[in-house]
C-alpha cells in the first residue's frame, strides 16, 4: 500500500514537473509572440518598461556585482595559489583564474545574484498583482499580462545579465590580480599580459552565452511563480521563495549541462 502510494506520488510529481516545464515554454512562446507580432497588432511591448526594468535589474545591481565578483576573483587566487604550491608553480595561477572566471564563475555569480534580486522581485510583483486582482484588471482593460509584465522583463534581462557578466569578468580578474600580485609578487601589468595571452574570445563568449540562458530562466521562473500565486500575502511570500530556489537550481543545472557540452 505504501509502495503504491509512493509510486503514485512519484507519478503526480512527474506530471506536475512536466506541466511546469510546459508552462514555462508557453510563457516564453507568448512573450516572443508579443515582442515580434505585437507591434503589428497595435499592441506593442513598451520600450519604456524595458528601460525601467533594465535600470532596476541592471544598473542598480552594478555595485553588488562588482563587489561579489571581486571577492570571487580573490577567492580563486587564494585557492589557486594554494593548489599550485604543491607543484611549485604559483605563477601559473593566472591561467586558472582567467579561464575559470570567464568560462564559469562570472556568469554563475551574476545569475544567482540576479535570480535572488530580480527574479524574486518579479515573482512578488506579479504575485501581488494576481492576489489584488490587478491581473484581472489588466485583462479586462484588454492588456495582455504577458505582454505588459513578462516580455519587457525578458528583454531587459537578456540585455542586462550578459552585460553584468562581462562586468563581473573584469572585476573578478582584477580581484585575482590584486591578490596574486600581493602574494606571489607578479606585477599587475605582467598579470594583465599573461591573462590577455591565455584568454580567447571563446572563453568570454562561453560565459556570455550562459548568461543569455540564465536570463531566460530567471524571467520565466519568476513570472510563472508570480502568476501561480494564491491566497493573499502568505501565498505571495511562498511563490517568491519558490522562485528563488527554483531559478538558482535551474541556473546551476543548466550551467552543468552547458559546461559539459561546451568543454568536452
Amino acid at each position: 500500500m505504501n509502495a503504491l502510494r509512493g509510486l503514485e506520488n512519484l507519478g503526480r510529481g512527474t506530471v506536475r514537473a512536466v506541466e511546469e516545464v510546459g508552462y514555462l515554454g508557453a510563457l516564453l512562446a507568448e512573450s516572443l509572440y508579443w515582442l515580434f507580432v505585437g507591434p503589428f497588432r497595435k499592441q506593442p511591448v513598451r520600450v519604456e518598461a524595458v528601460f525601467q526594468q533594465m535600470r532596476q535589474v541592471g544598473v542598480n545591481a552594478v555595485p553588488i556585482v562588482l563587489m561579489l565578483a571581486f571577492g570571487v576573483g580573490v577567492m580563486l587566487a587564494i585557492q589557486g595559489i594554494h593548489t599550485m604550491k604543491t607543484f611549485g608553480a604559483e605563477s601559473k595561477v593566472v591561467i586558472g583564474i582567467a579561464l575559470s572566471v570567464t568560462r564559469e564563475f562570472s556568469s554563475l555569480i551574476v545569475g544567482i545574484l540576479v535570480a535572488g534580486r530580480s527574479g524574486s522581485a518579479m515573482a512578488a510583483r506579479i504575485g501581488t498583482m494576481v492576489v489584488n486582482q490587478e491581473i484581472d484588471a489588466l485583462r479586462v482593460i484588454g492588456i495582455n499580462p504577458v505582454r505588459y509584465l513578462v516580455a519587457p522583463a525578458l528583454v531587459a534581462l537578456l540585455i542586462v545579465v550578459p552585460a553584468l557578466t562581462v562586468l563581473a569578468d573584469i572585476a573578478a580578474l582584477f580581484g585575482g590580480a590584486v591578490y596574486t600580485s600581493l602574494d606571489v609578487g607578479i606585477s599587475l601589468a605582467a598579470y594583465a599580459q599573461d591573462t590577455a595571452d591565455v584568454l580567447t574570445v571563446d572563453d568570454v563568449m562561453q560565459g556570455v552565452n550562459k548568461a543569455f540562458v540564465f536570463a531566460v530562466l530567471i524571467a520565466l521562473i519568476g513570472a510563472a511563480n508570480g502568476f501561480g500565486a494564491t491566497g493573499g500575502a502568505e501565498g505571495v511570500g511562498k511563490v517568491t521563495t519558490r522562485s528563488v530556489v527554483m531559478s538558482i537550481s535551474a541556473i546551476v543545472m543548466a550551467d552543468m549541462l552547458f559546461t559539459f557540452f561546451l568543454t568536452r
Binding site: T128, D136, A137, V140, I141, G142
Partner: peptide
C-alpha cells in the same frame, strides 16, 4: 482574441478591492 480586444474597449469593470495598479 482580436475581437475580444475590440470588445473590451466598450466594457468597464470595477473590481471588489478596486484592483488599482499600486505602482
Amino acid at each position: 482574441s482580436q475581437g475580444m480586444y475590440e470588445l473590451r474597449k466598450k466594457m468597464g469593470v470595477s473590481f471588489q478591492g478596486g484592483a488599482l495598479f499600486n505602482s
